[in-house]
Design a protein around this nucleic acid. Structure first.
Length: 362
DNA sequence: ATTCTTTGACCTTGC
DNA sequence: CGCAAGGTCAAAGAA
């Protein structure tokens, strides 16, 4: 934390401390009731996590390559934040490092089993079940089916059970964040109509698009329009317009624009800023940061809770970062995911969802 | 007229 | 050193 490099400081984990606890989430979910009814509250007790930072962006392959994600590709959001924290200390060595967060909201599909699971596990107020069913219905949405089914199935398979256990706590965190984000997303969702990247409250200008080899989706490149802000982000969208991955690079050196950005009358996304931002702003405060990503995935599902954040270290030495850095950084690192691999899987997967209940249990 | 998106070309980076 | 892929630039077009 200390070494904050001016321009490129390590990603600061923002919200961690002040982050609303699961319980808080619950409230959120309540607010969102309709869409997110199912989202179960998460165990309140989660420790601050520190997490592993993944230097490289790893792609989350939707269907085919799901089996073995590259190590460390996905980490929980918590990780990110943690990473950020730890980063500050450890990663500092590399001044130019640009931090990047990767957000991969996958199309989320919740299988019935999962739902039922949640229902059972969840403290569940029985009342929730109905909503869930509705959710299922939503989930059934064609778009998701396409993308989600594959994902889900593969994910479940690929994810080791033990990993889940490890991740349980983390997952809670993750879930929380995801939920938050989702919520934000939800709030802002309408704004993001296909074209726009999810708004995180900042103004972005698209400066490029490319078809990346590993993924079937085109990757769009955005820059923060703020004058001196170096932040960039890469967004991959699925056919549906859902975001497959978001990678933030750098850190905003300014606060979010509170008002509707630019004049774009189109109502750009920002409408939501107000509310959502406040939430974040508290946490983020002036910092701003990238940490947040919103996923709005579609309104259709309204649920995409799952997302993975990565902190991408600019450095190529992943191994070092992963192994050492991670731990080293925080020292404690609880991180998570220390188990890089597992984390990845977990994050990708539905772990979050499944874990939620677990969290409650605990 | 202004701003933003699109898109092909060019540059950079990693293997 | 060469190649491939990723990332950025900038002109052109659209809103």
């Amino acid at each position: 934390m200390m070494d904050i490099e001016e321009a490129e400081r390590v990603v600061v984990a923002k919200p961690v401390a002040s982050r609303p606890t699961c319980s808080t989430f619950k409230s959120f979910s309540e607010l969102l009731a309709g869409a997110i009814n199912a989202s179960p509250p998460i165990a309140p007790s989660h420790q601050t996590t520190v997490s592993a930072i993944r230097p490289k962006t790893v792609r989350f392959k939707p269907a085919a390559a799901m089996n073995r994600p590259p190590a460390g590709s996905v980490s929980s959001q918590a990780d990110i934040f943690g990473a950020a924290l730890s980063n500050s200390s450890d990663m500092s060595p590399k001044p130019d490092t640009k931090q990047s967060l990767i957000y991969k909201p996958m199309a989320k599909l919740v299988s019935k089993t999962t739902v039922s699971l949640l229902a059972n596990m969840g403290n569940g107020s029985t009342s929730q079940q109905q909503p869930r069913q509705s959710m299922e219905a939503n989930l059934q949405h064609p778009n998701h089916e396409k993308f989600g089914t594959n994902m889900s199935s593969s994910l479940h398979q690929s994810i080791p059970r033990h990993a889940e256990t490890y991740m349980a706590t983390e997952s809670c965190k993750v879930v929380q964040q995801n939920l938050e984000e989702d919520q934000k997303a939800l709030t802002s969702s309408n704004t993001t109509n296909g074209d726009r990247p999810y708004d995180d409250g900042y103004n972005w200008r698209k400066y490029g698009q490319k078809q990346v080899k590993g993924s079937e989706f085109p990757r769009s490149y955005y820059k923060c329009t703020h004058p001196n802000c170096p932040v960039k982000k890469k967004v991959e969208r699925s056919f549906d317009g859902q975001i497959a991955e978001i990678v933030y690079k750098g850190e905003h050196n300014h606060s979010k624009p509170q008002l509707p950005k630019r004049n774009t009358g189109s109502g750009t996304q920002q409408g939501s800023d107000g509310m959502v931002q406040d939430i974040w702003s508290n946490n983020n405060q002036s910092e701003t940061n990238e940490g947040r990503i919103e996923n709005n995935q579609n309104d259709t599902t309204g649920l995409s809770v799952r997302s993975a954040y990565h902190v991408k270290a600019p450095q190529p030495n992943d191994s070092a970062l992963i192994g050492g850095a991670i731990n080293a950084g925080g020292g404690s690192l609880e991180n998570s995911c220390g188990l890089s691999g597992e984390c990845e899987e977990g994050s990708k997967g539905f772990e979050a969802e499944e874990d939620e209940p677990r969290c409650k249990r605990r």
